[in-house]
Simulated scan of single mutants.
Amino acid sequence: MRLLPILLFCLVPYLQAQEAPMEVEGAMTVNVLQARYLYERGAIFIDVRPTREWTWGHIHGALHLDLLDHFNDLAQPQWPRQMPLVIYCDSEVCPHGAHAVKMAVSWGYRQVFYFREGYFAWQLLDFPQGKGLAGERLVFSRPAP
């Protein structure tokens, strides 16, 4: 019985959620209202959450590029580096969005927006959402000459 409080005290740091960084070098951090502004102007939203979370709900029209599965698709040279990308995870306690933003910046994307607040903030304001549709991917084809 005496061991339980000591054990819990030692485990607390490991049980706490990891907070995402406030900003990522080379990208602009945007809040939910700024993200909505970019959404209305046609920026490409990329959801890096696992498929299970994606199917529960996501920003309407966002592309699903799970950080652990398909996010590296963006590294391909055929994607135009001037595309405005808004990359998000679920909230401020999800570091995956920041990691994905760092990768996109390192691949030469020039307009990368880090939506740190993520899907939960979007959902809270009842902005356009979608559900299901697992497997939507970024498809880019160059126009025929």
Rank of each mutant, 00 (worst) to 15 (best):
R142Q: 13
F115L: 12
V48Y: 01
G132E: 00
I59M: 08
A20T: 12
V101R: 06
L63R: 06
H70G: 04
M22E: 15
H99S: 12
L33G: 02
D73Y: 07
W54H: 12
G108V: 04
R52T: 11
W107V: 10
L7G: 15
I59A: 10
V105E: 14
I46M: 02
M103W: 06
V112S: 11
I87C: 05
E117S: 14
K131F: 12
M22F: 11
V139K: 13
T55A: 10
R2V: 14
R49D: 07
L125K: 15
Q123Y: 09
F9N: 15
A35I: 04
V139I: 11
E25M: 06
R137F: 09
Q123P: 03
L4V: 14
K102I: 02
V101K: 03
P50M: 03
Y114W: 06
P21I: 04
G97Y: 04
S141F: 08
P13W: 00
W107L: 10
G132I: 00
L85P: 03
H60R: 14
Q82V: 13
E23Y: 05
I46A: 03
F9K: 15
A20Q: 05
P5Q: 01
N72S: 13
Y37N: 12
G26F: 02
P95W: 07
F9L: 15
P143I: 01
G42N: 11
Q111H: 15
H58C: 02
G97M: 06
R116G: 04
L11D: 07
L15S: 07
V86P: 08
A75T: 04
T55C: 04
T51C: 04
A104S: 01
C10Y: 09
F140C: 10
A98I: 11
V32Q: 00
I44Y: 09
A62T: 00
H99C: 08
R142N: 11
I87W: 06
Q111F: 08
L68I: 13
D47F: 08
P128W: 09
N72D: 15
Q123E: 14
Y114F: 11
V30C: 06
F71E: 07
L7A: 13
Q16W: 00
A134N: 06
V12P: 15
V32T: 08
G57L: 01
P143Y: 04
R142Y: 08
M28Y: 06
L4P: 10
L124T: 09
Q76L: 15
G132Q: 01
N31G: 04
A20P: 05
D69A: 11
